[in-house]
Design a protein around this nucleic acid. Structure first.
Length: 590
DNA sequence: ACTGCACGCCC
DNA sequence: GTACGGGCGTGCAGTA
């Protein structure tokens, strides 16, 4: 049974001091809040708790800001380390309500993802946020405290208790020191503290865990402080599409850009031939539309139909950005993806088209400076496989995709015009070669590969064979790695971080190795950049192999130099680097 | 209300 | 023999 000590007012601080003096090891912090949006006007923290693996808990009222500030400041001063399961959430909640900036709070979720890479394998056929796991998933808990809390809440507020968001409602409606609420939060922090002790005992994972925690801390406040967007430009994008969309909806009587029954019915009547989904619906994706067979008399209708779909692309994001009021306050999760890649949500800043990117602006007085790593995937694959030809093709001064193009289609890939620029044909081959390479490294099957290339499956097969016939070291590496994965061997990144077991999906082995190694590399570079940034500069957006920094205009050159030196590494003789660019006040694709 | 699917965009 | 990289957000449609 957990032993809960309550601090109800500042006069009782001596009790807190005594508790903290006794429990000065690893502590876990948790907040129970009235909602998930910390920026909502009515957002409140009901109760804050600190827990120790011994079962000791210190709890205090979240609505007493001064008390929260003082107790937590003392906790950080006395404890060996303070953790939270999803530290970004608790630190945002505390900053929003108490102006307490807990930059050194450590995230046990981030740590757990490193320490237990395959505790929760992705469900078959689906990827997504459930790769993240809750405390309950990580440690078997009784659920007793949560059930008791719900029962107690239900007796006073039956209607509220039936809702799926009953917990935040309970926090809002119950007194902070309700027994069941305290028991619930106590269970969470004590379980959390035991989890943290477990993780800390894993000496092999420790360096990787420390790096991930530092990366999480590095990105902690970017979204809280917010990223500026140009509302004027966003309105222009919305206004530009609006007439086409309104006209189309009026003409068709339904929205052509979204799946619905009316749309399916209309297309069947029109007699348009399209591939179908598993469920039998006509597929209307970007790839399918140009290949549709359209009866001659239906052509004009079809063109209008397609034009409205194209006009609608980006509009959901435009609306989402407009709703932000000019400041995007998204969260970066530094290792939410199964491979260890970072993700971004509310909004996602990693899937912006170039038009949307241009609505992202530096804050006043600042500029954006950024760098993309050049051809990370081929370089990492070269390093992992040791393929001598690929290593040679990844050398500085060469363009690996032109080399691959030459391997597959011959020396015309090198053709240049009088000015020394690639001919249009050569440029096209390079582009296709990039697709080929990504397909190889993504572990893509022949069917998807073919559709990506715009070629037949047989042609795709031939191209793959041709490439693998030349990069024999790569072919051997790929085969062996997949065999090891199938045997149940543990694969690791280039630097030794454990990957999830791939016994049941060996085809993913090559991709995971590349993607995970690239993620580790990129995060290391990001930390090195961040550590050197001058006052007023901050890392703004991570896009897997592209880093955007915001800095005072006067510091642009300095920051570019920092990026140039930090974003450079040589692995197995293969250089990987990013050329920094002073982008200006508006983000665009480099 | 919740889930699954299809689709959009990104690396 | 077939299918096969990692994400997030939106909206419809089916189920409860």
């Amino acid at each position: 049974m957990n032993e809960i000590t309550l601090i109800t007012k500042a006069a009782e601080l001596r009790i807190a001091d005594d508790w903290l003096a006794t429990h000065n090891g690893r502590l876990v912090l948790d907040t129970e809040t009235t909602g998930l949006d910390v920026f909502a006007a009515d957002f409140e923290i009901g109760v804050v708790a600190l827990g120790h693996s011994s079962g000791a808990v210190l709890a205090f009222p979240g609505r007493d800001r001064d008390l929260v500030r003082v107790v937590l400041q003392r906790a950080f001063a006395t404890a060996r380390s303070v953790w939270a399961h999803n530290a970004i959430y608790d630190s945002w909640a505390l900053r929003a309500t108490s102006e307490l900036k807990l930059s050194s709070l450590k995230c046990s979720l981030v740590a757990a993802r490193v320490a237990y890479p395959d505790r929760f394998p992705p469900p078959k056929g689906r990827t997504g946020p459930e790769h993240g796991f809750s405390l309950k998933d990580l440690r078997p808990t009784t659920q007793h405290a949560q059930d008791a809390l719900k029962t107690s809440f239900s007796s006073d507020h039956p209607a509220d208790a039936r809702r799926s968001d009953w917990l935040p409602r309970a926090v809002r409606l119950l007194p902070w020191d309700t027994d069941e609420l305290l028991a619930y939060v106590a269970e969470d922090v004590v379980e959390g503290a035991r989890l943290v002790d477990d993780i800390a005992a894993d000496r092999n994972a420790r360096p990787f865990i420390n790096d991930e925690i530092a990366t999480d801390q590095l990105w902690r406040w970017t979204g809280f402080d917010g990223i500026h967007v140009d509302l004027e430009r966003l309105r222009q994008l919305a206004d530009k599409a609006a007439p086409t969309l309104a006209e189309a909806e009026k003409h068709f009587g339904f929205k052509p850009w979204t799946g619905n029954k009316a749309r399916q019915e209309y297309l069947r009547k029109l007699g348009v031939q399209l591939p179908t989904t598993d469920g039998g619906a006509l597929k209307l994706g970007k790839k399918e539309r140009p290949a549709a067979e359209v009866p001659e008399e239906a052509q004009a209708e079809w063109d209008m139909f397609c034009a409205s779909i194209e006009a609608h692309s980006d509009q959901a994001q435009v609306d989402q950005f407009l709703a932000s009021g000019g400041l995007l306050r998204g969260q970066i999760s530094v290792n939410a993806a199964i491979t260890g890649r970072s993700t971004s949500r509310n909004p996602n800043l990693q899937n912006m088209s170039s038009a949307i990117r241009e609505t992202v602006i530096a804050r006043p007085g600042c500029v954006l400076v950024g760098a993309d790593l050049s051809h990370v995937e081929p370089s990492i694959l070269a390093a992992l496989s040791g393929d001598p030809l690929l290593i040679e093709h990844c050398a500085r001064g060469r363009d690996v995709y032109i080399e691959v193009a030459a391997v597959v289609w011959g020396p015309e890939a090198f053709a240049v015009d009088a000015a020394g620029a690639p001919t249009p044909e050569a440029a096209k081959l390079r582009k296709r070669a990039k697709v080929v390479f990504l397909a190889l490294s993504y572990g893509m099957g022949d069917a998807s590969f073919a559709s990506m290339l715009g070629a037949s499956t047989d042609e795709a097969k031939l191209i793959r064979q041709k490439a693998l016939g030349v990069y024999t070291g790569l072919a051997r590496f790929s085969k062996e790695l997949q065999q090891r994965a199938r045997n149940g061997d543990r694969l690791t990144t280039l630097d030794g971080r454990n990957l999830p077991l791939l016994t049941d999906a060996p085809y993913r082995a090559v991709n995971y190795s590349i993607q995970a190694s690239a993620a580790t590399l990129f995060k290391k570079m990001t930390r090195d950049v961040a550590a050197q940034l001058p006052f007023g500069a901050r890392c703004l957006i991570p896009v897997h192999d592209e880093l955007v920094v915001e800095c005072l205009a006067a510091d642009a050159e300095t920051v570019a130099d920092i990026i140039r030196s930090a974003m450079h590494v040589e692995i197995a003789g293969t250089p990987i680097w990013g050329d920094p660019e002073i982008i200006g006040t508006r983000w665009r694709k480099s």
